[in-house]
Amino acid sequence: MARFFIRRLVLLVAVLFAVTFLGFSAMNFLGDPLFNVVGLMAELDCEAIEAGSAEDPSLDRARSDCETVAEARATYHLDRPVPVRYLLWVGDMFTGDFGTSFQNDQPVAEIIREKLPETLILLIMAQIVSLGVAIPWGVVAAYRANRAFDRGSTVASFGLLSIPNFALGVVLLYLLSLRWQIFPSAYESDSVVGLVFSMVLPAATLGLPLAASYQRLLRTDLITTLQEDFVHMARAKGLPPMRIMFRHALRPSLFSVVTVFGVSTGAMIGGSLVVEQIFGIPGIGREIVTAVVRDDFPVVLAIVMLVACTFVIINFVVDLFYSWLDPRVRAR
């Protein structure tokens, strides 16, 4: 167990470095890094401006811009090679300095702190929706495998899996909010109840397609498990069917779901960009899209890093979760 854990940990650290380095170099190699940091000011011909008449008041503005550029070069160490810059940047990240938005000079750490809760609530609610729907759905489908309900749910999940997130969001928004007016159409933060209620549709948009895929996985694994000897044994022990289903068959059938849980969190994070847009949720997803559109690179970079690292860590935790699901993994 200890060795297993250490090996995973080493891999985790390696992947985190690789992921951040990849993101960092993308920002530095694709396009002009100076531009990425100071925007249009990078185009200024500072030497010419310096050389210009010191008296000329029309150049005052340009001169201060040039100072900003020089400052940026210094803060972002733009005259150093990329690997060095990367290490300096990682160092900054460790001290909690995530950079500063050059749209509004707000520290990125502060932006993240402000927007993260909304996104977290959304993602957690979405996972609750997907598991809450998928587990009963998969259990019933497997219990009555190949009967009408099961066949119907195959078709339904096929459909759900073919609707892109944004399309499902728009359809749900139209039907449940505008047409039948069951849920609010926009984000509310006045009260906790209102907040949760306004998050139901976004969470369903993210969670339902996932529920369909969880349901498929769970159903297939359950059908296999239900043919295992130990299920027969449990029946020979005289335990009632639903007790066997939940106490004996479910846990060993959760492997695929747990495996996909990590990846699906990635898909969900991607989906949250879109969903926050549709339902006007002021979260990380909307922030990054806005930042991309405004070429606010420090924000983009910091959020991408945050998201990628979270994703890597979630998958690491999921791997550890296996050992709870199957004690045999611990022995390996």
Binding site: D229, M233, H248, P252
Partner: peptide
């Protein structure tokens, strides 16, 4: 679906003890 019949009156032992025990309990 009579309760407490199988397992109490009659029960069964299977061939393969590797597979007839639940691996996660």
């Amino acid at each position: 679906g009579t309760k407490h019949f199988f397992g109490v009156q009659m029960t069964m032992v299977f061939q393969d003890p590797m597979t007839s025990l639940n691996p996660v309990k």
